[in-house]
């Protein structure tokens, strides 16, 4: 990996990060993670209360990239064909013609994904995993750069269908935005008194650059020991008592890739253990299925992963 490549990737990150930050205030860290997820080739799930800026953040990223962007607002009556597309009979040509759905795009914002029925959800999740869809028996490839940002309200909200736990595994990481500080919020409302800053966001990275970033991320060096460390973290979730379903090998891969992206973000061509620790909870926690007993005793998946992080010696 050349020095220039590192600088190029770092510069891309900075450009994207700065651009998004003009819209979303006080979320520097989460922007860093979203970009890492994007560069690592994973999909991202944003979960938080309504109005915390999930959609805006997703849109800001989409707009910053000079790429095709589609948005699906998930509703209970949404059908799989509304996402994938549908073949309609053309009476003139006497044949079925495929109308491609919104899934054929570069960046897809799946807003409030947990409002749709599980059947519709799985149609999208399948596409995310395979990178291809089959409509009417025809296999069709999706775009090379296919990135899904899904948002969802916390499960407790009314009128939602919780995502099947196993399907959560398809997302590389789950982020919670949380509320910003009072000062930031004051700044935010004053900025939005006239127009929403999202309207003035211009693309700053084009499609080729985006693809290059992904390619460079894959070239970041991960030492054998750190790979072992990643595997140790992930496998520990399977051995933990009270965990019904531990994290899959897909989690190990996602953890490595996002850590690689974070390294690039920090202008390094190798992963440090800090990068792994920094992102581990966000990459692993949402994949775990906990025993009810454990849940009721107040243990959350996040606290469980934090505990695991503290129980495994890190290579230094």
């Amino acid at each position: 990996m050349e020095k220039s490549d590192i600088l190029f990737a770092h510069e891309l990150f900075m450009r994207l990060s700065d651009n998004i930050e003009t819209v979303i205030k006080g979320q520097k860290e989460n922007i860093r993670y979203i970009l890492a997820g994007f560069a690592g080739g994973g999909h991202i799930l944003l979960e938080d209360n309504p109005g915390t800026g999930k959609t805006t953040l997703a849109k800001a990223l989409a707009k910053s990239l000079d790429a095709r962007f589609k948005r699906i607002q998930f509703t209970p009556d949404l059908l799989p064909s509304d996402i994938l597309g549908v073949s309609i009979f053309d009476p003139e040509k006497k044949e079925f013609r495929l109308h491609k759905g919104p899934v054929f795009t570069h960046i897809l914002l799946a807003d409030e994904i947990n409002r749709a029925s599980p059947r519709t959800q799985s149609a999208l999740l399948e596409a995310m995993a395979e990178g291809q869809v089959s409509i009417d028996g025809n296999l069709m490839n999706l775009e090379a750069l296919f990135f899904v940002i899904a948002t969802q309200n916390p499960i407790e909200s009314r009128g939602t269908y919780p995502l099947p736990e196993s399907q959560m595994d398809r997302f590389a990481m789950q982020l919670e935005l949380g509320y910003v500080t009072n000062e930031t919020e004051a700044l935010m409302i004053s900025e939005q008194s006239q127009t929403h800053p999202i309207h003035s966001v211009l693309p700053c990275v084009n499609l080729e650059e985006g693809l290059k970033l992904r390619q460079l991320t894959g070239e970041v060096f991960v030492s054998k020991e750190l790979k072992d460390y990643i595997v140790a973290l992930v496998t520990a979730t399977r051995e933990k008592p009270g965990v019904l379903l531990g994290a899959s090998p897909r989690a190990s891969i996602a953890l490595m890739k996002t850590a690689q992206a974070l390294a690039l973000f920090d202008k390094a061509d190798f992963v440090r253990p800090d990068h792994i620790q920094e992102i581990a909870t966000r990459v692993i926690a949402h994949r775990l299925v906990l025993d009810h007993g454990l849940k009721f005793s107040g243990v959350s998946a996040r606290s469980l992963v934090d505990e695991i992080l503290k129980s495994i010696p890190v290579p230094v």
């Binding site: 440090r272 800090d274 992080l309 503290k310 129980s311 495994i312 010696p313 890190v314 230094v316």
Partner: peptide, 20 residues
């Protein structure tokens, strides 16, 4: 360096990376 600092009362937890 770690040894010296640890002797001086700043030991590192085994799960802590050097940076943290």
């Amino acid at each position: 360096i770690e040894e010296i600092l640890s002797e001086k009362g700043f030991p590192r937890y085994p799960y802590e990376t050097y940076t943290s």
